[in-house]
Design a protein around this nucleic acid. Sequence first.
DNA 1: CTCCGCCTGAATGTATACATTACCGCCCCC
DNA 2: GGGGGCGGTAATGTATACATTCAGGCGGAG
Lengths: 243, 243
Amino acid sequence: MAPRAKDNQEGRALLTLRERILGGVLPGGTRLFEVPLAEEMRISRTPLRAAMSRLAEEGLLERARGGGFLVRAFTVADVIDAIELRGVLEGTAARLAAERGVPEARLAEMRALLETLEGCFGAGRAVAFERYAGLNGAFHDALQHLPGSEIIARELQRTKTLPFASPSAFLPDEAAHAAFEHSLFYAQAQHRALVEAISAREGARAEAIAREHARLARRNLDHLIRTKAPGAPISPALALVID
Amino acid sequence: MAPRAKDNQEGRALLTLRERILGGVLPGGTRLFEVPLAEEMRISRTPLRAAMSRLAEEGLLERARGGGFLVRAFTVADVIDAIELRGVLEGTAARLAAERGVPEARLAEMRALLETLEGCFGAGRAVAFERYAGLNGAFHDALQHLPGSEIIARELQRTKTLPFASPSAFLPDEAAHAAFEHSLFYAQAQHRALVEAISAREGARAEAIAREHARLARRNLDHLIRTKAPGAPISPALALVID
DNA sequence: CTCCGCCTGAATGTATACATTACCGCCCCC
DNA sequence: GGGGGCGGTAATGTATACATTCAGGCGGAG
């Protein structure tokens, strides 16, 4: 019937472009010209255009007036709004899950994730940060995919994959680690409270906790902006990791 | 440099497909085969695929596993969630606008829109419904595009253009008009209160009003489901109009 | 000197032929 | 009788040539 191989030309172009955009090789506002890109990747313009179209769907590119694609540019204000939006959507997902009920097995999975997250606080600082970020992402994924709302999960997915900057290029340095460490304890406490609220079917409380959780990320971002040297690249991704 | 004409093949395919999907000619789950569609439209597969890709971006189509596109199918639960989501996003937009401040000129425009909306209540019933729906849409557009959050406006736009069904195919009948009429007065009162709250920079109040506004739509949808004959087509669009 | 118009180049839009692959039914073997 | 492999077929993936259109420069005329 039809191919679904992921090692096709479109897939390769998709990965290459996404990597370059997230890696900062292609700054926001850059126009992507089909011919040179296709020649460089040794593919034809057809799968390249398909890949660009999918990246537009993801929100990494935007269509230029008159045709063609631009790398989407984000401002600090956009990042702040995205954090706000994420808090609102996660809050809604948590509230709906609480109101509509969640199977005990799913809640048990999330509690297990929280146990593992606790383990990060005993280990060495740098290593713990890496582990924490990964497990934290897993927890939020689980929260997003709680049963109760496909539609909201979809929007949340879009918001979480917004192409702010390269996560790896902006990992927090040691000083940032120290500054944010205390916030991690608070964040973890919020994680626990969130699961408890959903478990107790207290929707309003679950929503409030998720929002406060996002406010923590917002505060960390503000701190990062204040303490970074003026003109230094801000890490939007960092704010979304340390939440 | 590049063409920007909108009467190109892709544009025609886009309009044709969107019309058929929203018109219910292509029910949810229908697979769109490129070759027959392209032949019927007398265009080649290339612009047709581009059009389908854009429709996937809009949320009207989804990519099938193994390639190709399906018309996205929505359940009643999806519509309920979409109403919920819309209330949440409009609430957030209203809150942020209130917190961050809105130029008086913009508020004046919205107040003028409200004045016009009031006019619908004096006229004949059927005519007023049509006018009300249009003006109501304009009001919500204005709300969406209040300064303060591009990111949230974007998500809101996606939510509002979700392809539930043909609006025209499901316009409420006379009985529905009567049943919903009283809710319009309440809705209009909420519109006024919303603008006042934003004007007074009371963010929390603005958000609460927007949410309650969505709850009204939800209640109308529930009523519609209960009173319609079982098996009769439900109008998701109606619920989004009469809010 | 200025302005209008053509002309050329560069970029995307489109058509079409060909390649690839997933699905489905058939057949063989167990 | 059932399951697994195998091929045909239909649909999408890809390449390439050509069409279209816009922008900008260049030249000629007023």
